[in-house]
Design a protein around this nucleic acid. Structure first.
Lengths: 160, 160
DNA sequence: GAATGCAATGTTATAACATTGCATTTGTAC
DNA sequence: GTACAAATGCAATGTTATAACATTGCATTC
């Protein structure tokens, strides 16, 4: 199966993550919220798992540094990050992913690969405007900026 | 909250359901599969719950007639119905719905209301073609004919 | 500097959702 | 009627998520 968390040491990526974490911290503060140590650690783990990670895998990783961590520890952090627009939940797969897009003016598509469980975030104006129009016509209103779609990823398409 | 299962007696609907069940049985047989009693009962319960129903609510209903029923009883039936294209699972809500469209040549949108958990199935050519184009451009291939979207339903939009 | 308020976290337990594995029965082809 | 596959019964377990309550740490007020 897929690794729970990116397993390659990569100092360059670490550096990018630190910057992203600092930006996230600033944007939380700007909203009067605080990216505490736990939340920052969870977000860091999400950044290191670009194709999504499960809550209990996160818990296992968090426990390495914080042996007392329990399910609520990670679920609270995840709820916070989702509230802050820093992460998304992929309902179909019970998978959590960091949001790579600074702000969600445009709703995102999440392509979930049913073969490898990988998640790709995509922003497509054309799809979203067609969607908005159809929803409005049906009397519905798009609520969440997250639309999940099962789609086989390029790697798995190739693998057959 | 919403009722687990449609609670109004309605002989007319019963009749429609019987016809739909018979059609479903025929289409299974045509594919070399068999819509057994349990599966038929589960599908019947799905038909009576147009906005979706949870697996353990189904289990409770099934147990009324079959006291020995257990989680695998309903999950196996649901898996079968999904394989046969007679039902869908809404991952975000752990909700199951009957499919109202005879065949899924066209993928369906499932509008899941985050307020009342109701599910509406919608077929929109324009959205789906925009989606197919974008996915193809990104190297992905739509796998499941089911696309779930969180959207507030007309009733809840009105309720504010 | 004690008391208060409050957000975050710790801790335990349990609810809710889903699957595995294996024994038994049923249906059906030969 | 034997043999085989499909379906079901059943118990246990695995997985995901939340409830309920206690504690900590820090800022503010008195």
């Amino acid at each position: 199966m897929r690794p729970a968390v990116s397993d390659v040491e990569n100092p360059l990526a670490d550096c990018e993550n630190t910057q992203a974490l600092d930006r996230a911290e600033a944007s939380c503060r700007a909203r009067g919220a605080s990216l505490t140590a736990i939340r920052r650690e969870v977000l860091d783990l999400l950044y290191r798992s670009p194709t999504g990670v499960k809550a209990y895998d996160l818990l296992a990783r968090i426990k390495e540094a914080r042996p007392g961590a329990s399910p609520p520890t990670v679920y609270r952090a995840l709820d916070f990050l989702i509230d802050q627009g820093l992460a998304h939940k992929i309902g179909r797969m019970n998978l959590f992913v960091a949001c790579r897009h600074a702000s969600h003016q445009i709703p995102s598509l999440f392509l979930v690969c049913p073969k490898c469980s990988g998640v790709t975030e995509l922003q497509e104006q054309s799809v979203m405007s067609a969607l908005s129009t159809s929803l409005a016509a049906a009397g519905h209103r798009l609520e969440s900026p997250e639309v999940e779609i099962s789609a086989i990823c390029p790697k798995c398409v190739g693998a057959g």
